[in-house]
Design a protein around this nucleic acid. Sequence first.
DNA 1: AATTTCACCGACCAAGTGGTCGGTCTTCCG
DNA 2: CGGAAGACCGACCACTTGGTCGGTGAAATT
Lengths: 204, 204
Amino acid sequence: MNKNLQRMATMHRMQVKGLELFYRQGYYNTSIDDILKSLELSKGAFYHHFDSKEDFFISIVQNLIVQKVYALLIEPLERKGEPFTALIECFDNALLTAENNEMDHGFVLGNFMTEFNGRNPEIMKYLTDLYKVWEVNLVTALQRGKSDGFVDRHVDVEGVATYIISSYFGLRTLMVEGNARSLRYNYIQQLRGYCRTLRPKAAV
Amino acid sequence: MNKNLQRMATMHRMQVKGLELFYRQGYYNTSIDDILKSLELSKGAFYHHFDSKEDFFISIVQNLIVQKVYALLIEPLERKGEPFTALIECFDNALLTAENNEMDHGFVLGNFMTEFNGRNPEIMKYLTDLYKVWEVNLVTALQRGKSDGFVDRHVDVEGVATYIISSYFGLRTLMVEGNARSLRYNYIQQLRGYCRTLRPKAAV
DNA sequence: AATTTCACCGACCAAGTGGTCGGTCTTCCG
DNA sequence: CGGAAGACCGACCACTTGGTCGGTGAAATT
């Protein structure tokens, strides 16, 4: 096999498994040996490709998490038209994957932000940067919604964006055990109700 | 000094410092030696009072966190009258302490729920139990608000409770670096707006 | 065919980790 | 006063951690 392909393949395998274990067990609670054991690879292989555990994690953020957040949470907001429908659909999809115990990359971000906050500024920077991109895009979408008459002109779009993302991150914190389904349902109901109050008021 | 008092005092010192470090650095990222070093106490002292690191943490939950959550987040809701004012005041206070880098015990709870989710069911149980008490009390307060005519009778009180707590937990995830002040302001504004939409509609 | 490159191996290391245990010294109680 | 109780000490243990390094064998280059 082509050596470069080989290299990429191995690195990718490590990153995918690494993300899975870091997400499930936490970064500090997951050793490199854990990852290597489940891949049947050696220490040598790992340090041949990555400088350190930290470097490894950053490569996961850049290669896996960033892409997913863009694809699943940011790009869908760029559609023209009424922004709330797209947003709610996004969230509903994400929560549905979470319900099936697959990885919900929106929350992967929130989860790691919690774990690294105040503990690893280097990694934290990559995470908050990604978060900010998401936030800015949400703000932009709302702003455009305002111009297009889908959002009331008195609405504070930044405040709304923060509030919406907050509620999403927080909900995922509560999504443990078998209560995911009803939480998702309740949450989407409330989010829908909240968004409805942001639409233009009938002329007075 | 009285032996029993001595015992209590030492245990309490360990718990307070333990909570501080576990909260700041994470449970898995904080060693018992870390705590003992900063208290100038020995391993022997620790294992004389506690069975294990896990047992120690549970004692912290029961002795420190439970009390604070009750005092700061649950009891204020039990007042008669319009529930939203009490709620918003609670949250504003909590966020203010967080802004000053003191411990906000509401978020201490959410933070640890994130850290232990899927990693330590034993500890998780204590945390989710406490969370449920909080939630139930919020639901009760909203229900009472409904009876007293402060909350619209069509409102789904459980959904609202979940949504409010979610938004709070999530906001705290975003409260990093120096942006706490504006986040708090924006958040309280939005929360206020959201609560307003839950009040009884004028008769049609 | 000879040589260089490089993906991967795995024994090894120092520095921790949670936890044990025999001991000391003060306080308490008969 | 004398002995038991118990708060606290700190050396020690087995094990895990992130990370190093000399090696091997197959593929790529010459």
